[in-house]
């Protein structure tokens, strides 16, 4: 445990920007830790990573990370990241976003980045709410659950971010939780190494805002819920539809091959320069 903490600290801007904005018991720190350990395990240099985010609780992550960091406008992280990646394809570009940031205001950038298959690793922390602004309902607030702007229960359906990414053309889609930290680290590692647009949705508990509005108890209780309702995609194959009814799937949900955008654009440059016959 001590060693693990030491690893994390090597990647933090500890002298500059702590304490963080996150509440005690927040799940974002767990995801942050998993990303750092993934980067460390992959032996990627800090200079090779560009971490880009939008606006929201999870989007504050880059400020604390000792990488090349870009904290942008609400929903636009993927569009900024597209510029970074295309201008400097050798960088590993990791986008940190939330369910509101990435799927509501940033929904268009999300589907088009996936469609383009640009080599960006997107970590979407899904806490089912707009936590930074105090708990309004988001595109991922489940039907019937509560938000400050859905005081009588949410009557909108929620997105499945993984299905959305898959349907939009992402080549790697995975889901993890803040409870299953080892699995999460492995999923992030795979996503970073994947050529093309990859998504890791993290089911991320928010006990202070969403948990209280929906009477879901402490952070521990919310994580226990994750433990009891997450089913790995391998295990799910052996389970009856009945047993799977109130469960959600974790693990690598989708993994295909398709040419990555920046690599394809290098071919455009060669064609334009007449080095390749059309």
């Amino acid at each position: 445990m001590e060693q693990m903490t030491q690893v994390t600290h090597r990647y933090l801007r500890t002298k500059k920007k702590f304490p963080s904005v996150w509440c005690s018991g927040c799940g974002i720190g767990i995801v942050f830790g998993a990303i750092i350990r993934a980067v460390d395990n992959l032996k990627l240099g800090k200079d090779q990573i560009a971490m880009v985010s939008g606006i929201g609780c999870s989007s504050r992550m880059p400020v604390y990370a000792d990488f090349n960091t870009l904290h942008t406008t609400h929903g636009r992280a993927l569009a900024f990241a597209t510029g970074v990646k295309l201008a400097k394809p050798e960088l590993h570009v990791i986008v940190i976003t939330g369910d509101g940031d990435g799927l509501a205001i940033g929904g268009n950038h999300f589907i088009h980045s996936a469609r383009r298959n640009i080599g960006i690793t997107t970590i979407l922390l899904n806490n089912n709410t707009y936590a930074m602004t105090g708990g309004q309902y988001s595109p991922c607030t489940p039907f019937d659950k509560f938000g400050t702007t859905a005081p009588f229960g949410n009557v909108e359906r929620s997105f499945d971010p993984c299905d959305l990414a898959k349907g939009s053309g992402a080549v790697f889609v995975a889901r993890g939780t803040t409870y299953h930290v080892i699995q999460l680290q492995k999923l992030v590692e795979k996503a970073i190494m994947k050529r093309g647009f990859s998504l890791v949705e993290v089911v991320c508990h928010c006990s202070t805002i969403y948990g209280r509005l929906n009477r879901e108890g402490t952070a521990v209780k919310m994580m226990e819920w994750q433990r009891d309702h997450a089913v790995s995609i391998q295990a799910a194959q052996r389970m009856s539809p009945e047993k799977l009814r109130d469960k959600f799937l974790t693990g690598v949900l989708w993994d295909i091959e398709f040419p990555e955008y920046c690599e394809e654009y290098e071919k455009v440059i060669k064609r334009a320069q007449g080095k390749v016959n059309l």
């Binding site: 942008t72 406008t73 900024f80 597209t82 970074v84 990646k85 201008a87």
Partner: peptide, 8 residues
Amino acid sequence: AAVIGASI
């Protein structure tokens, strides 16, 4: 947004 990202 992409212009800014590229410039940075």
